[in-house]
């Protein structure tokens, strides 16, 4: 279905995935292939399985893969722990970033960054070196250094939490980033900041999956592919025109498609 074949090894290949949580099957055969440099958008109604897809890629323990495979850079990652996936370059931007009282944001970012750097066989950063790096990345999301001295996401506004997610993405420098409704709950200024942050991180080597309900994020970041999900499956794939069509016609016509398939 995807036209842009480069002949290179795909970055991420999801094949016929069936997944469930608490005995409820949510994904019912999802296929998706992402090449380096590609931006994909996944759209669909609440409960269609978008977030579940993102969680199984990141390895959330509450979700079980019953069938199918997930291959990251040619390697099956199904049995990897979440932290192993993260270190190897998979990043999930949470729809609802978790608050962790008492744990310093700065400390958290440094430990995470160094875990990734160690995996990449780069030198780990001491506190001073890290401070320089994080200051540079803070620019990207227009965050104040003071945020780093607070506990992880605690007392952050919705916009601040999402910016903190993009900051983490910038620091971890992932090869594949799944951003789960990063645009939800943001006002237009915050959306622009987040979008410009994502654009600066995107490059020819990495791949990005944007999970969203709305067109407005896609106005800022143009996806190469748009997938529409319904009832645990991808029912239609197209280019950015598909998103516009969706915006115009709403999700009702996808119901039709989902029944057809």
């Amino acid at each position: 279905m995807q036209e842009k074949m480069t002949g290179k090894e795909p970055l991420l290949e999801i094949k016929n995935i069936f997944a469930s949580t608490e005995d409820l099957t949510i994904l019912k055969g999802v296929d998706i292939t992402i090449q380096p440099g590609e931006i994909h958008a996944i759209m669909g109604r609440n409960g269609c399985g978008k977030s579940t897809l993102s969680k199984i890629i990141a390895g959330h323990p509450a979700y079980k893969i019953n069938q199918g495979s997930i291959t990251f850079k040619g390697k099956n990652i199904k049995s990897l722990e979440p932290e192993e996936r993260a270190k190897s370059g998979i990043f999930l931007g949470f729809q609802y970033p978790i608050e962790i009282p008492g744990v310093s944001n700065l400390e958290f970012l440094r430990v995470a960054t160094n875990a990734r750097r160690k995996f990449l066989k780069q030198q780990e950063l001491d506190t001073f070196e890290f401070e320089d790096l994080v200051k540079e990345k803070l620019e990207l999301v227009k965050m104040d250094y003071a945020f780093l001295n607070r506990s992880i996401n605690q007392g952050f506004s919705g916009g601040e939490k999402k910016r903190n997610e993009i900051l983490q993405m910038a620091l971890l420098n992932p090869e594949i980033a799944i951003l789960d409704e990063t645009d939800s709950g943001l006002d237009i200024d915050a959306l622009r900041i987040v979008a410009s942050g994502i654009k600066k991180i995107a490059n020819k080597e990495n791949g990005i999956i944007l999970i969203t309900h709305y067109q407005r994020l896609l106005d800022e970041i143009k996806p190469d592919f748009v997938h529409v999900m319904a009832n645990g499956q991808i029912i239609k794939t197209g280019d950015c025109k598909l998103a516009l069509e969706l915006e115009k016609n709403g999700y009702e016509w996808t119901d039709q498609l989902s029944q057809d398939s």
Partner: peptide, 26 residues
């Protein structure tokens, strides 16, 4: 969810637990 959040940023399970416990005691 807290554990998964830390793990999904590459932090080992043990370290994640210990971080949260010491955060709790901060």
């Amino acid at each position: 969810d807290q554990l998964f959040y830390l793990q999904s940023r590459g932090i080992e399970f043990e370290e994640a637990v210990s971080m949260m416990v010491s955060g709790f005691c901060r």
